[in-house]
Design a protein around this nucleic acid. Structure first.
Lengths: 194, 194
DNA sequence: ATAAATGTGGAGGGCGCCTCCGCTTATCAA
DNA sequence: TTGATAAGCGGAGGCGCCCTCCACATTTAT
């Protein structure tokens, strides 16, 4: 039905388009960092020196833009889960990864769109990023549960929601510290005591 | 410096103004419940049948409106802490109150403004509401710490942030359930095990 | 060189925010 | 009762942002 990607009819993607795409992501990244995720898209286009229409062509929604910017980091975070799982005992790995997760979220500042991705709710655009994170946390939790070191009668994702949500309220470095304590309490609470 | 409230020059507040104020709060409450806290203020004014200028006269910012609407419920929540403290053992009281807190937040739907009040950040308007909540949670935590039943090496407020933040991400009844589990884990984690 | 596909830019319609100020209405004093 | 006057009302209007749409420009392939 659809064309295969190596169909002979395929054309090389235009060079200028790719350049603009990168330029927009670069610009958006700094603007978002400066002004939070509610920064005006028109401003981003203006600073990047392209028309607003171009921005919308590449990123049909604000979410698409945000998501594109942070896909790399999300991938890295997911990868970290695997490597931690291989190099640390289950509970330690989980704890360390949760700390990294918080750092990841905190640096995203007010990026509620990214956080919303975790709900797995509406946005198709986030589906794959969300899957990465969900897979990561499930991997770590399952491992610790398998060894009997912790019990968990809830969706691990909800723990991430709490940690991420805290960041959305109390943004900045203060939450890093608080979250660290919180993680310790959670781990302690999840330890199978009997 | 400022006029005393019983200064002879004081005038009776106008009846129509008070009526409009109440009408606006009533309307806003239902509209916010329907459409979340991002509902248009102009729509609220329209539905209430008053001019937009009137809305802004009574509530100079969106926050002021939201805050006014929920002041009652916030007060009740704070009062619940005191009564729970008098009728339940420390840890039970804390757990029950946290559950109530989550319910309170969940029913506020997407009211990030209310949640922000907990940061004690910018908004002077929220200062007193925030103080009520902070006082409530501190009362309950201190009591449980005093009896030695729990230890807590962090600001109790940060626990509220996590619970409230989770609600802001995963809104609705699902979070009620998740939060309940989370509260149990937290309580377990805070119990002084040794 | 030329055709076709692809991408560009910005005008424009819609909406929400908030301010400002001429008009209305309630209160008070005479 | 009747002004006088403080208090309140309302909505037009300026601004900025969102997003769509399409005539025009640029790139690629032939």
């Amino acid at each position: 039905m659809a064309e295969k990607s190596d169909e002979p009819t395929a054309r090389k993607p235009r060079a200028d388009a790719e350049r603009n795409r990168l330029l927009l992501m670069e610009t958006a990244k700094t603007v978002f960092a400066d002004k939070g995720s509610s920064a005006s898209l028109e401003e981003i286009a203006r600073i990047a020196g392209v028309g607003i229409g171009t921005l919308y062509r590449h990123f049909p929604t604000r979410d698409a833009l945000v998501s594109a910017i942070y896909r790399n980091e999300t991938t890295q975070l997911a990868a970290a889960a695997k490597s931690l799982a291989e190099t640390h005992p289950p509970v330690d790995a989980l704890r360390l990864w949760l700390v990294q997760f918080v750092d990841y979220v905190v640096t995203k500042h007010g990026m509620s769109e990214v956080l919303d991705s975790l709900v797995g709710g509406t946005s198709e655009l986030y589906a794959d990023s969300a899957d990465l994170i969900i897979g990561a946390v499930n991997l770590l939790v399952d491992r610790a549960v398998a060894t009997g070191e912790i019990r968990l009668a809830m969706d691990p994702l909800d723990i991430l929601r709490a940690l991420a949500g805290g960041a959305s309220i109390s943004c900045g470095p203060a939450w890093r510290e608080a979250a660290r304590q919180l993680i310790d309490i959670l781990i302690a609470g999840m330890r199978a005591s009997r």
